[in-house]
């Protein structure tokens, strides 16, 4: 059974109305948001199994702290797309600005285009799949979760990374402190294949390289002073 989406026109109503409706008990299962025009904080703090489609560009923190919802942005997104995502999914057909999925704990974030700097910064368990390229300092201090980059990665990829795993198909401008290339074993190919399938992409997992923490910064050591 298909249900008709509830349409919210952000040219006519404030973001507050949309978010309040999405936060109400038992919200309608399908939502369509039109005329976002780069508005901030669209579909923030949703905790319900709803599908939200946003037609147009969004500003900062779209789908921030998302729980259970599946959010689709048909356009570009500003800073902090899906920041602190807990579960559910956030997908955007265009490009996203900096700090995609910052400190995200769970769920899946898919960016069909490119991302700005610091994609997956402080990631804590969410998965991020980027169809294009990511900017500099991506995966900075990423603690857990996986980041898949089908294009290239900017400078200082994975600087001060903890236990997050990175897969990059294209060129890496440079690796950050304590980030190293690691062997691509069968389990990693299988994990990556699963992520690509989940994200609806058809890249060949064998074309990717894997990066992660050398774990040399896990304990303070004065010999590392230039690394801090």
């Amino acid at each position: 059974m298909t249900t008709t989406a509830v349409t919210v026109d952000l040219a006519a109503r404030p973001v507050r109305d949309l978010n309040a409706a999405l936060h109400a008990p038992d919200p309608a299962p399908r939502w369509r948001v039109v005329n976002p025009a780069g508005a901030h904080n669209v579909a923030v703090g949703v905790d319900a199994p709803v599908a939200v489609q946003i037609d147009g560009p969004v500003g900062y923190y779209c789908a921030g702290m998302n729980q259970r919802a599946d959010v689709l942005v048909r356009g570009n997104a500003g800073t902090g797309l899906a920041e602190n995502i807990m579960s559910g999914s956030v997908r955007i057909t265009g490009s996203a600005s900096q700090s995609v999925a910052a400190s995200g704990c769970g769920g899946l974030v898919v960016v069909d285009g490119d991302t700005g700097a610091r994609c997956g910064i402080a990631l804590r368990g969410a998965d991020v799949v980027v169809g294009g390229s990511v900017g500099h300092m991506s995966a900075f201090m990423a603690q857990a979760g996986r980041i898949v980059v089908c294009g290239d990665a900017g400078h200082s990829l994975g600087d001060s990374i903890y236990e997050a795993r990175l897969y990059v198909r294209g060129a890496v401008a440079s690796l950050g402190t304590d980030c190293v290339e690691k062997p691509m074993l069968g389990e990693h190919l299988a994990e990556l294949a699963g992520l690509l399938t989940w994200a609806g992409r058809d890249e060949d997992p064998a074309a990717f390289r894997r990066y992660g923490s050398a774990r040399r910064l896990y304990h303070f050591d004065s010999a590392n002073h230039t690394a801090y």
Partner: peptide, 8 residues
Amino acid sequence: SEYRALAE
């Protein structure tokens, strides 16, 4: 600074 400035 932001997409919203470009939207129109």
